[in-house]
Amino acid sequence: MTLRTARHLTSLFLVRDERVLLLYRRGSRAIADSWVGIGGHFEPHELADPTAAALRELHEEIGVTAGQLADLALRYVAVRDTGTEIRTTYYFTAELAAGAPIPAQCAEGDLDWFDLSADATGLDMPPTAKIAFTHWLTTGRHDRELRLIAVDANGRPAGTI
């Protein structure tokens, strides 16, 4: 059995006016250039507080603060085995509050707003991001459930025992 390291990440799908903000992240150490929510790695002191990590990343990457959000919710927890690393990603959603400035730039890549009726299956996304985002667009945004995702080293949904 191969021993694996661990990586903890956050990702947030930010909604405004029936559109959702995604980032085409470029030059990441962890993933190929692709579409993701706004987020990143936990700091060591945040390991017990995924919400704090998500809010810090949101502020660092696009300048949005907790006070500019409504309906912040943890929606998916994903575990991905890359073969050398176990990645746990906490996927959040939130509404950008009325009157809050609309983010337009991010040093990590290109921002774009997608219609909530968009078909996400054609977007180039990491495996758990694609599962979470596609499910959220079609089903998850209509309820308040917390869901779990498991993906194997080949990027396929992992089975259970």
Rank of each mutant, 00 (worst) to 15 (best):
T2Y: 14
L3D: 11
R7S: 12
H8C: 08
L14V: 07
E18K: 10
L22V: 02
Y24W: 15
G27V: 06
G27C: 10
D33N: 06
D33S: 07
W35D: 04
W35E: 02
H41R: 13
E43N: 11
E46D: 12
A52R: 14
A54M: 00
E60D: 12
G63M: 06
L69G: 11
L69E: 07
A70P: 04
L74S: 11
R80M: 08
T82D: 04
E85T: 10
R87F: 06
R87E: 07
L96K: 15
A97F: 13
A98N: 13
A100G: 05
A100E: 00
P101K: 05
Q105C: 09
C106D: 07
E108Q: 10
G109F: 08
L111V: 12
D115L: 10
S117Y: 06
D119A: 03
T121W: 01
G122D: 14
M125L: 08
P127M: 03
A129C: 08
K130F: 01
I131P: 00
I131D: 03
F133W: 02
F133C: 06
H135G: 01
W136D: 00
G140F: 10
R147L: 11
L148M: 12
D152Y: 14
G155I: 01
R156W: 01
G159I: 11
I161C: 15
